[in-house]
Simulated assay, not measured.
Amino acid sequence: MMPVAIITGGASGIGLAVAERLLDDGWKVAVIDADGAALIDAEDLLGGEEAVFLSADVTDEDEIAEVFNQAVDTLGPVTALVNAACVKRHARFEETSAELFRQVLEINLVGSFIAAEAALERMGHELAVVNMVSVSALRANSGDTAHGASQAGVKMMTEVMALELAGRGVRVNCVAAAPIETPDVAFGPHGGRQRAWLERTPLSRAPSVREVTAAVAYLLSPEAGSVTGHTLVVDGGFSVSGLLPGD
């Protein structure tokens, strides 16, 4: 039987790339996203009998329950969940309002929690969860008060889930990625914030989409059957770098 993955935030960005990778690897995939236009584009790109495309807000428990039921009815019990739904709002601490802080935590942290609960209730014999986070989950970065707090929360939630759910055949891990270079995000001399990341990255390059999706695919695979509660970092060494040569 083909394994079934649900991907939140799967209609664009890294979520879409993960959906494409898993379909190529022989998975059935349910793509969930709140952006209707992006869902249409994703279906045009990936549509087929092994994929379904469903609209839902990850912060709405009723909507998530409904689309997870639709996914299970169409594809079968959930084998894997990839939480890729995320909002990034860069603002320094004194510029971060309580409203902004709540919005970011609601989508990034509470949304991941709601989706994970829904997947657990609809899992098959085993379940693998991968929560996508930024390297801001691991170290402080200026301008990331809300985003960093949300990502660190997801990382800790991942570890607690791994601890509590292992006896039920559930593995829970994170992939922590640095900003990824894409046609829409440049890392050249005028790349602004992105360029600043590279200046503190030992490998002096941004990770590729393929490298990040390969990390996700590994953590969902049987080869990672003994890996749980782990954060697999794909960042060119950014999270462990201190002063670089020449500083």
Rank of each mutant, 00 (worst) to 15 (best):
I7M: 05
T8M: 02
T8S: 05
A11N: 04
A11T: 00
S12L: 03
I14A: 03
I14F: 04
L16H: 05
R21D: 11
L23Q: 05
D24I: 00
D25G: 08
G26H: 11
A30V: 00
V31A: 02
D33I: 01
G36R: 14
A37W: 00
L39P: 07
D41N: 13
D41F: 09
G47R: 05
A51Y: 00
S55M: 12
A56T: 01
T59S: 04
D60V: 01
E61Q: 10
E61M: 09
D62K: 11
E63H: 07
F68C: 01
N69A: 13
T74P: 12
T74G: 12
G76H: 01
V78S: 08
T79C: 12
A80D: 07
V82W: 02
V82N: 01
V87S: 09
K88M: 14
R89C: 10
H90R: 14
T96A: 08
T96W: 04
S97R: 12
F101I: 02
F101Y: 03
Q103P: 10
I107L: 14
F113E: 11
F113P: 09
A115I: 02
A115F: 03
E117S: 05
A119P: 01
L120F: 11
R122M: 09
H125L: 15
L127F: 04
A128M: 14
A128P: 11
V129H: 13
V133Q: 06
S134E: 07
V135C: 09
V135S: 07
A137C: 12
A137H: 08
R139C: 10
R139D: 10
A140F: 15
A140P: 15
A140S: 15
N141M: 15
N141W: 15
H147G: 11
A149D: 04
Q151P: 06
Q151G: 10
M156P: 11
M157G: 14
A162P: 08
L163G: 15
G167Y: 01
G169T: 06
R171N: 08
R171S: 07
C174R: 03
C174M: 05
A177E: 06
A178I: 04
P179D: 02
I180T: 03
E181M: 08
E181N: 08
E181D: 08
T182I: 01
P183Y: 01
D184K: 04
A186Q: 13
F187W: 11
H190I: 00
Q194R: 14
W197P: 06
W197Y: 11
L198Q: 03
E199L: 14
E199D: 14
R200F: 09
P202M: 12
R205A: 12
A206I: 11
V209K: 04
R210F: 13
E211R: 08
E211M: 08
V212K: 04
T213M: 04
A214R: 07
A215T: 00
L219Q: 02
L219V: 01
L220P: 04
P222E: 07
E223P: 04
A224P: 05
A224C: 06
A224R: 02
G225A: 15
V227Y: 07
T228R: 08
T228N: 10
H230W: 03
H230L: 10
H230Y: 10
T231A: 09
V233E: 06
V233A: 04
V234G: 05
D235F: 06
G236S: 06
F238V: 02
F238T: 03
S241D: 03
G242L: 03
L244P: 09
P245G: 13
G246T: 14
G246P: 12
G246Q: 14
